[in-house]
Design a protein around this nucleic acid. Structure first.
Lengths: 339, 339
DNA sequence: CTTAAGTACTGCAACGTTGTAACGTGCAAA
DNA sequence: TTTGCACGTTACAACGTTGCAGTACTTAAG
């Protein structure tokens, strides 16, 4: 039984609308009326009812964030940053997990309208570009996509970043370089781009890519990396001297397998990942990686959504793509112990 | 401009209310009327407006989950499980980050009413027990608390689990055992309980706890563990032969410092953590830990909330406390390489 | 043949809010 | 003085839904 405008109004001896005006900071309210109303508000502990506001035609202050899964550290950290970036705007974030299944993404995008949601930040993993718009919801896409997608979109340049990782290995004098995390299906855009960058950097150094050293995975977790590394070591007579893993968890799993097999990292095999998750700073050996600026990704995602929502950008404005910078973090898994 | 009841009604040639009755499965509707209405619903793609329903007095299908931060792997994994457990009930989960600040928790609990939320699952870190109820929202608490708290509550027995961890170290013949993660303020209930369990197990073996080996921390991250370990090593002339860290990230940070200082884990120092996060299975050395059954924690939390919400349990029923089992996962950081 | 109970459906009001239009004021400009 | 205007305030309607009370008709019971 929370206080309503009506209660405040009768206590302050004014009309409902005047209270509404005070609450909403309308200018033309006599100071003493305002004070009287404010006193009543404080006395009753009045808090506006957002449901009613929404019904009347406003926003809900809730946006949805859809990621493959929260147990992936990269997405957990990103989600945390997005929640934080949404805070100053007074938004709360509703989180959905897609499990990376296009079908589930589709259900989500179309079904989210049932909730009272202002906008969507979607990290798609397999949804066809054209399908994204069907929801009719203001949407921002995260992650490496085609740059002419159907919605606003924030990402790093995956191919360039992958090439940077590869070149880092090449600069260290490694040339028999494996790649773990190749796509197992054509819709996995992120992995396809990273693979392309890998190939480009190899080609740039005049090196051929041994097909047996390109290992596809079905998941992007530590277990998948460990299994892929084991498979790789079992299939080739001579192990690679370096590995570019397309995510940090893949790399950490691969490193674990190396340890189990008695391979020294980076002595025998240098390993570099991709994500820049905090875990890699403290692992043994610490993990060299490509770190997208996740803070800026989160900020841009929220800002782009805010612009679409606030009408700052007409719906007719074509989708914008923002490319966020990345850094190469060279650590022990490629450089060795530093001291 | 989605279709409203009114639109469906005029298309089907019936009253608004009859359409409402059909949508809500009211029994006394003639089959042919129902079919006619259903056809209109399908034709117009009518979807009920949840905001209006909520205003009228129903639930929203949205629950809130408040955790300290998503970047903590334990909470990220738990959040993922809760989102998944909420799915079959048709609930979506709105996530808030408290940063472990009681003040922020207070704001959240009282402010969440502003959103249209049916219930709250709160993992408190410092909020006084009595304050939790002020929100007036059906609430389930997570994490080790007083067992006579003001709301339904799911947790492992933190003291018993901590004692298990300590006894594991004792069984390995270690006796100079340090604890990293002691509370730096009295309201940190979780850490206080784990410390109590640690002390109890030590006392049970007739061992005194060297106060210098009990290290308080201000945060529970890898960095805090690394710093605490460094502080510990700097302060005592002879390093401990084992360390119980109150969370896995603390343990992983501590292990990292050991590596930097040339201490072998577990040769020189055995390390055990608390959380059972996936990361510990793949770290080098893999991390011994206490693993609460997070799957069941998530399930119970959602189920308890559902009971309060669904009226299956009267509001008068006193708060229930569910104690979830935990397992000791003994791995390399205490046992050494197994092969 | 009346009465009661049940079925099929409808209209109205209410949930709490805000935009719009309107109403008096009082004061400055005509 | 009259006009005009800005100010302070208010009544009313609407947002889309559902509970309640009611109407009209049908069937069963007394």
């Amino acid at each position: 039984m929370p206080a309503r405008l009506k209660d405040v109004a009768s206590r302050a001896g004014v009309s409902i609308k005047t209270v509404s005006n005070v609450v909403n900071g309308y200018v033309h309210v006599a100071p003493e009326t305002r004070a009287k109303v404010q006193a009543a508000i404080d006395a009753l502990g009045y808090v506006p009812n957002p449901t009613a506001r929404r019904l009347r035609g406003g926003g809900t202050g809730v946006i949805a964030l859809a990621v493959p899964e929260l147990r992936s550290p990269y997405f957990a950290e990103l989600a945390g940053l997005i929640v934080r970036a949404a805070e100053p705007r007074g938004w709360t974030v509703l989180i959905e997990q897609t499990d990376g299944r296009a079908e589930r993404e589709r259900d989500l995008v179309s079904g989210l309208r049932r909730h009272s949601i202002d906008g969507l930040i979607l990290s798609p993993a397999g949804l066809d570009a054209t399908e994204v718009l069907t929801g009719g919801l203001p949407t921002v896409l995260l992650g490496e996509r085609m740059w002419d997608g159907p919605a606003d979109h924030v990402a790093v340049d995956g191919a360039a970043a992958a090439a940077d990782a590869t070149r880092h290995l090449l600069r260290l004098g490694r040339w028999r370089i494996a790649a773990i995390g190749a796509p197992d299906r054509p819709t996995a855009v992120t992995r396809t781009q990273r693979l392309a960058g890998f190939r480009a950097a190899m080609a740039g150094s005049g090196l051929a890519v041994d097909p047996r050293l390109v290992v596809p995975v079905s998941g992007m977790h530590r277990a998948d990396g460990a299994a892929a590394m084991a498979r790789l070591l079992d299939q080739v007579e001579q192990p690679p001297d370096a590995i570019f893993c397309f995510t940090d968890p893949l790399a950490l799993g691969a490193i674990r397998t190396c340890a189990d097999r008695g391979l020294d990292v980076p002595g025998d095999v240098a390993v570099i990942g991709f994500d820049g998750i905090e875990e890699g700073r403290y692992s043994t050996p610490s993990l060299s990686t490509i770190a997208p600026n996740t803070g800026r990704i989160a900020q841009f995602a929220v800002d782009l959504l805010a612009e679409r929502l606030g009408g700052g950008v007409s719906a007719a404005v074509p989708p914008r793509a923002i490319c966020v910078e990345h850094r190469l973090l060279a650590r022990e898994s490629t450089l060795g112990r530093l001291r």
